[in-house]
Design a protein around this nucleic acid. Structure first.
Lengths: 344, 344
DNA sequence: CTGAAAGCGCTTACAG
DNA sequence: CTGAAAGCGCTTACAG
């Protein structure tokens, strides 16, 4: 391991000042084409790579983005969203010389601390905000900290194109949930339950709103709603509670696949026939969905594309100061054999 | 947002040189107690936090660790290991002012590129090596790059306490697989198959060795072994292949839970009764394991503890230059209802 | 025990 | 079009 070449080595070898080397490398005007070529050649020959920490100190830029996830590790492990989302983010950052700094915290208490530390240390140039909540404390916090951010979905109250809002990268999940509900209605179901994620999360209530509207448009009540923390455990107990009802549902729509798969487990344990006695749908269309029995009808989003779009948007925001909202392909239902006609 | 206080502000306010401030803050000898107290008080009053990039430039330290995962996002999403492992890592890094830089790459080709970039940019002070492979190219690569590392498990050929080896943080999985196999043997199974992960991965062959030894010790052949890429898809097709055999197994041991759950799906699809017609075991004991039907017998490891131990070891290695190997509680089998006596 | 200074490796006005 | 210099905010020998 020989010493890494510095800008000084390049400058000396090229017979110019280091300022000029910096200009040439950063594609700034004011360098004659011949000089620029010579500098770039020398830099390549010396295998020169600018020091990140030196650049960071000069430019007050870390060349990294942050993702803070406030979820219990148990839930995180069951949820295929984040790995795919992160893979999408990486796919664009890798080529941009940016790194992803990841923080997993158990609760929303520690979350704020982490954001403050990331800011104080200038560890990242911007952050991704996932799992938007009602009255989300992260929005004012990050604004106060002056930390650029991109939200997954649009926060409450924000209008498309709000001047002072963080850019939003949106993947509308309501068409998926509407399609799932309508699919069940079309199959003749009249009592359809909804097992949702935590109500403090925006998408839980938004999806439930879409669900309820679809049922009501068909003249059906949307009164069977159970809130969970997204764990398979609570998916199972919600299913137990629903099936114990005097007038149990003939179909259950779940907020994620692990809960739906747990629901299948509970139904089988009770000797129910699927989808004959009970239809079940999931959400996220994880790989496992098509391999359980019966194969799970689920709502497909595209976390990888979401990650890519979010990364590109944050990159634009942090480099140019502005970035437009992005709308991705909405979610859609994937029909499999866990849903079927209601029994006569 | 007022300007952040710098070491100069503290020095001026305390009436000392900035060198002394640095000494006081870093707990170095040569500062009188009174002066140190005064400096620390002033620093607190000014809400002073040393600039990370300035420190990094001076000390050639990034105060961050790297984790490069070479897996298809699809597989990653189904596998609960990494989220828990990462949560464990975070739990110790958070209090040590270190950050985790995460890279997800699709294949082992890009892996080397990422390690080179992380090193060239001095983006991290050390890395975690997970999913050890046979003849693992990362070991010589990182040694060549001079990048400190900690391995999860001991690499091939390395002896406990090798002077020049990277510290290994080990969680022995063979007791778990041995117990699973023995459990099936005790239940009277004579034809037991093993659906393993990629053979290039150390743990796949190591576990299969333990599996085979257990069967052979009981006078049983261990000839039914199918290699997969760890996806539920290949777990399902391996199950199909096994059940299509003229003399199919009465029990199948899977290398992870998603494959085992897919196996349950295939068995149910064929109208088999579990565990009457077929016993099934998984690996990792994911949350879902206990909520599928029948509840899945699985092998439990502790990824969270693994993450914590790995982080502490890497921290010690990068700060002191040496770190001992660590042995964690070995894996053990958790018996549930997907395994039962072989049918008469 | 304390201070003044050099150095880490960049970027960026400022002169010429 | 090019050079010399200051500055980013720390750490660390070196003197005293």
């Amino acid at each position: 391991m020989k010493r890494k070449a510095t800008i000084n080595d390049v400058a000396k070898a090229a017979g110019v000042s280091k300022g000029l080397v910096s200009f040439a490398l950063n594609d700034r005007p004011g360098v004659s084409p011949e000089t620029r070529d010579r500098i770039l050649t020398v830099a390549r020959d010396l295998d020169y790579r600018p020091s990140l920490s030196a650049r960071s100190l000069s430019t007050r830029t870390s060349y990294a983005f942050g993702l803070v996830i406030a979820r219990d590790p148990e839930i995180l492990g069951a949820d295929p969203f984040f790995p795919s989302f992160i893979a999408g983010v990486e796919r664009v950052l890798l080529h941009e010389g940016r790194a992803l700094v990841l923080s997993v915290v158990a609760d929303e208490q520690h979350e704020a601390t982490v954001y403050r530390t990331l800011t104080a240390d200038a560890r990242v140039d911007g952050v991704f905000i996932t799992d938007l909540r009602h009255d989300d404390s992260r929005i004012p916090l990050l604004r106060e900290l002056g930390m650029p951010a991109v939200t997954l979905g649009r926060p409450e109250g924000a209008q498309h194109g709000d001047a002072d809002a963080f850019p939003a990268v949106c993947l509308d999940d309501t068409p998926g949930i509407v399609a799932a509900a309508q699919h069940l209605i079309d199959l003749g179901h009249r009592r359809i339950a909804h097992v949702i994620g935590p109500r403090r999360m925006l998408h839980a209530t938004r999806r439930n709103g879409a669900f309820a509207a679809t049922l009501e448009a068909a003249g059906l009540p949307a009164d069977l709603v159970i809130e969970t923390d997204f764990t398979a455990a609570q998916g199972a107990s919600a299913t137990e509670a629903l099936l114990d009802l005097a007038d149990p549902p003939t179909a259950i729509v779940y907020g994620n696949d692990p809960m739906a798969i747990a629901g299948i487990g509970v139904a089988h344990e009770r000797g129910l026939n699927l989808p004959g006695d009970l239809s079940i749908t999931g959400f996220d269309d994880s790989e496992l969905a098509r391999y359980v029995y019966p194969a799970l009808t689920s709502v497909r989003t595209d976390p990888l594309a979401w990650g890519e779009a979010a990364a590109r948007t944050l990159l634009r925001l942090t480099t140019t100061g502005v970035a437009d909202d992005v709308d991705l392909e909405p979610a859609r239902v994937i029909t499999r054999s866990s849903t079927g006609p209601v029994r006569a």
